[in-house]
Design a protein around this nucleic acid. Structure first.
Length: 551
RNA sequence: GGCUCCAUGGUCAAGCGGUCAAGACACCGCCCUUUCACGGCGGUAACCCGGGUUCGAUUCCCGGUGGAGUCACCA
């Protein structure tokens, strides 16, 4: 068989040589140790938590080392390209603080290693596929879907590994004449890798491949023996081939991807070998898991079943991007939390991220933990930043809340309650929850959510009347509370809760009950920050109004 | 089923041959306190099993078991 002729027969339109591409995309001129990483999402426009998780690793690795992080659009499948997908991807990631140095952008490619959209790189893949064919390392395969199914059924019946390999790779043996004939007939075909692997050998003779994974350490598995498709009938490459060609030509140094790619690593290794290229450093990340309610077991998060996988889930609820970022980093690097405790105010980018500190097992997504982290993140924001964040969220998801933002000073004061004490309040977790928390500051959202305390039931009107009568908006906090004490005492309640606890028969209740009655009248709920502070923000008129309603 | 990965409390996790087996979240109790939140103190709770190697294994090796992933002209 004259492979050179075969290559020309198959790819007459490919005139460039692999060498030309090699020369066109030379080694990058980067400082020692600089890492080149990439994110390769499908253009469905759906960026999920897993993408974000992976993107963080890519971004940190590249930017921490003075390297390059680029965006490559992996659209080699037939799935429809969602309009504006690139924009969605870039914006989603930017929202979480991740920016690309190079790659696909809304205005087209940026960078010297493009094209960054795989569907535009057809000739490049075909050129290298042609090279492989010319060297007898790949071949055209004319098997139809039905024939492949028949082979699979036979293999399954014989309990053999399914696939096209060894003796099942019948197209390997086609003569030039047969190929020419099929071509002339217009029979569709794919290009398959001609694998050297042979699993039918005795076990100790099966070749094994070792790869040093930056996260997982030494990986060891049997060499690939599958004649994997590298070019589909359409001339478009499969992921495997596109990955190898692109990451080589784009001079990627570190390939960060999910553990679901581990099983196909031997294919990639063989491809790199056959092409005569150096292997990039692989970083196979752990998968984000979720507790399956039906089975009670951990399982990979799936976009079909798990809404919390969608980034929109967090944006809809109004989690602050910095909180999500902070949380992701705690599950990404086991020493991050420790570092954060030692450096509470440091910029998150000062943390030295390492692949060695990444865990290999799948982590369960923990909303509790996110909430806890979120409280601390939001505490560090100024009232103005909180306002802007909340407004940005409402503008996008809750336009009906626009009126909350009409009086900036007012809302800022509300959001800032109790945040500057020695032991600051941590009331804010995410936007939606914040709005619910502060709803009573707005008359149209005020609701009676809680009951008045039972202890004050009889005296309620009297208590509120006395409160209203003695109310002086100009009182300072201690002056204000002194008056509550007086009311408490004259109404037959204990001024000190301890006295009430000791002698419950002697009092109707204690100062806490009286305060709670006032709180409920004012806020419609039994729990809130300091009443005096709230009144100062509410203003005298509305304070009096709300109390009066119960008289 | 083959191959691969993984295995410390409910969750996330330190540990890398000798520890009373850290810490965080959650939970419970107490304290602080006019409620809640915050904060402080304390508590419940873990090395999957069986063999080796070793004076000594959570840690190293082997074998199970369990879980996960993957076996496409999808990525």
């Amino acid at each position: 068989m004259d492979y050179k002729n075969l290559a020309e027969l198959l790819f007459p339109h490919i005139t460039k040589t692999p060498e030309e591409y090699e020369a066109a995309f030379p080694q990058r001129d980067l400082p020692e140790g600089a890492k080149v990483t990439r994110l390769g999402p499908s253009p469905t426009g759906f960026i999920h938590l897993g993408n974000l998780y992976s993107a963080f690793v890519d971004e940190r690795l590249a930017h921490q080392s003075g390297g390059t992080f680029y965006l490559r659009i992996e659209d080699t499948d037939d799935k429809r390209y969602v309009e504006g997908a690139v924009e969605i991807i870039i914006n989603s990631l930017r929202f979480f603080g991740i920016n690309f140095d190079e790659g696909a952008t809304m205005e087209g490619d940026m960078g010297a290693y493009g094209d960054y959209t795989q569907s535009n790189r057809g000739p490049i893949y075909q050129c290298f596929a042609k090279g492989l064919v010319a060297e007898g390392k790949a071949y055209p395969c004319f098997l139809t879907a039905d024939e492949i199914n028949a082979i699979r059924e036979e293999q399954e019946a014989n309990k053999q590994t399914p696939g096209i390999y060894g003796k099942y790779a019948v197209s390997r043996n086609l003569t030039m004449e047969e190929i020419e004939a099929k071509l002339a007939e217009g029979i569709p075909y794919v290009i398959r890798l001609k694998s050297d692997g042979d699993m039918s050998l005795p076990e100790d003779q099966i070749r094994r491949v070792q790869v040093e994974d930056a996260i997982r350490g030494r990986l060891d598995f049997p060499a690939n023996d599958q004649d994997t498709v590298i070019l589909k009938a359409t001339g478009i490459p499969t992921y495997h081939f596109a990955h190898v060609v692109d990451d080589h030509l784009m001079r990627t140094t570190h390939v960060v991807r999910g553990a679901e790619w581990l099983p196909s690593l031997p294919i990639h290794v063989e491809l790199f070998e056959k092409l005569g290229w150096e292997l990039p450093i692989y970083c196979h990340t752990a998968q984000l898991m979720k507790m399956d309610e039906e089975t009670g077991n951990k399982r990979k998060l799936s976009k079909r079943h798990d809404p919390e996988l969608s980034l929109d889930y967090y944006r809809n609820l109004g989690y602050h991007p910095a909180a999500v970022r902070e949380y992701l980093l705690t599950i990404l690097n086991s020493n991050f939390e420790e570092w954060r405790m030692a450096n509470p105010d440091a910029d998150i980018d000062e943390f030295q991220f390492t692949t060695e500190k990444m865990s290999t097992g799948g982590a369960l997504f923990d909303l509790n933990k996110l909430n806890d982290i979120s409280k601390d993140v939001l505490l560090k924001l100024s009232a103005a930043e909180l306002f802007d964040f909340l407004k940005g969220w409402a503008d996008e998801f809750k336009p009906e809340l626009a009126h909350l933002f009409e009086d900036r000073k007012y809302l800022e004061k509300i959001l800032d309650i109790g945040r500057h004490e020695a032991k600051p309040r941590k009331d804010h977790i995410y936007a939606q929850q914040m709005v619910e928390n502060i709803s009573y500051f707005f008359d149209d959202m005020f609701k009676m959510e809680d009951e008045f305390p039972a202890e004050t039931a009889e005296d309620l009107p009297a208590i509120l009347k006395a409160y209203l009568d003695s109310y002086d908006h100009a009182d300072d906090q201690s002056g204000w509370f002194e008056k509550i004490r007086q009311i408490t005492e004259t109404m037959g309640y204990a001024v000190k809760p301890k006295d009430f606890k000791k002698n419950p028969d002697q009092f109707k209740g204690h100062v806490g009950h009286v305060s709670t009655a006032i709180r409920v009248a004012l806020m419609g709920r039994q729990q809130s920050p300091d009443v005096w502070e709230i009144q100062q923000i509410l203003g005298e008129e509305r304070t009096r109004e709300r109390i009066s309603k119960f008289l």
